[in-house]
């Protein structure tokens, strides 16, 4: 006979933020839909939705941080958070997988077919007579006009170096946190944040370069589509990661974490490694080969 309490923290009937978040997200997306359909009023709804969503995030994360600091969470709760974060990152991996599939499919399958390889002979002869398949390509109809490719060894290589070093600095900061070296922790984390935002800035510069000088745009056939979709979603994730790192940095400065209890730090670090790995795949398959 045992009467062991589980002590698992269940917040009772106080969850305002989810419903606020649902409303915010819906506003955001309804607004976006209206804009896409050409209704200008959509922008107000979009902004309102965005603000509500941000409010929700501040509020929700704030609540969780307060609860965490006041010691409501035990090791079990911590483990729940860990499993959740891991599988959330896995779902993100699958999201990127969809776009990588598009890239590989176009290169290995649809372009060769259009270009008359294998079963594609008739397709090429009758529909796209002059088209030769090669990569990069904007397709048989030359959609978007002549363009130049983004080379691997300029900014992208530098960005690779930046992201890889940021992976090192965040690990360094983690070690410092575990060893209770406050100064190193803050230094390492600050460096990571700087590297992260530098990456984003360089990426933005690269986009400007692509649009203004290379005539490489989202509308540049399948090459432009996959290029901007993959790097764009990646860049967005880096931005989010950098913002999250900034928050963690501030929390470190405030002294929120202890050497043996710092799940939020680790979660963001995992996330950062994830965008890092995705970048490596991008570098290899989008820029290099």
């Amino acid at each position: 006979m045992s009467a062991v309490k589980t002590n698992y923290y269940v917040p009772h009937h106080t969850a305002w933020w989810p419903i606020v978040g649902s409303a915010g997200l819906t506003g955001l997306l309804v607004g976006a839909s209206m804009i896409l359909n050409g209704a200008s009023t959509g922008s107000y709804i979009l902004v309102a939705g965005l603000l509500i969503t941000l409010l929700m995030m501040f509020g929700w994360f704030g609540t969780v941080i307060r609860e965490s600091i006041s010691g409501l969470y035990n090791a079990r709760v911590d483990t729940s958070f860990r499993w959740s974060m891991i599988w959330f990152i896995f779902s993100e991996v699958m999201f990127f997988a969809a776009f990588f599939t598009a890239l590989f499919y176009a290169r290995a399958y649809s372009l060769p077919w259009l270009g008359g390889m294998g079963k594609g002979v008739v397709t090429n002869e009758l529909l796209w007579p002059a088209f030769e398949a090669m990569w990069p390509s904007n397709g048989p109809a030359n959609i978007g006009g002549a363009f130049k490719v983004m080379g691997a060894w300029g900014i992208p290589a530098i960005n690779t170096a930046i992201l890889l070093s940021s992976g090192v600095t965040v690990t360094w900061a983690h070690h410092a946190l575990k060893a209770d070296h406050r100064r190193q922790l803050i230094l390492g984390l600050a460096l990571t944040v700087i590297l992260g935002f530098t990456f984003v800035a360089l990426q933005a510069d690269e986009y400007i370069h692509a649009y203004s000088e290379l005539n490489l745009k989202m509308t540049t056939g399948i090459y432009g589509s996959t290029f901007f979709m993959l790097t764009g979603f990646h860049g967005f994730h880096v931005t989010m990661g950098a913002v999250m790192l900034t928050v963690i940095l501030l929390r470190c400065i405030k002294g929120h974490f202890s050497p043996d209890s710092h799940f939020a730090f680790e979660a963001v670090a995992w996330y950062w490694h994830f965008v890092d790995v995705v970048w490596l795949f991008l570098f290899i398959f989008v820029y290099w080969f």
């Binding site: 699958m94 598009a102 904007n138």
Partner: peptide, 29 residues
């Protein structure tokens, strides 16, 4: 589910942002 999200996102950009994922003229399918 994330794969579905990716697929419909490509539909969205094909329709509104001029991408060619599913357009053979641009090398898609």
């Amino acid at each position: 589910i994330p794969v579905l999200a990716g697929a419909v996102t490509m539909l969205l950009t094909d329709k509104f942002f001029g991408t060619s994922f599913f357009n053979p003229a641009g090398g898609g399918d």
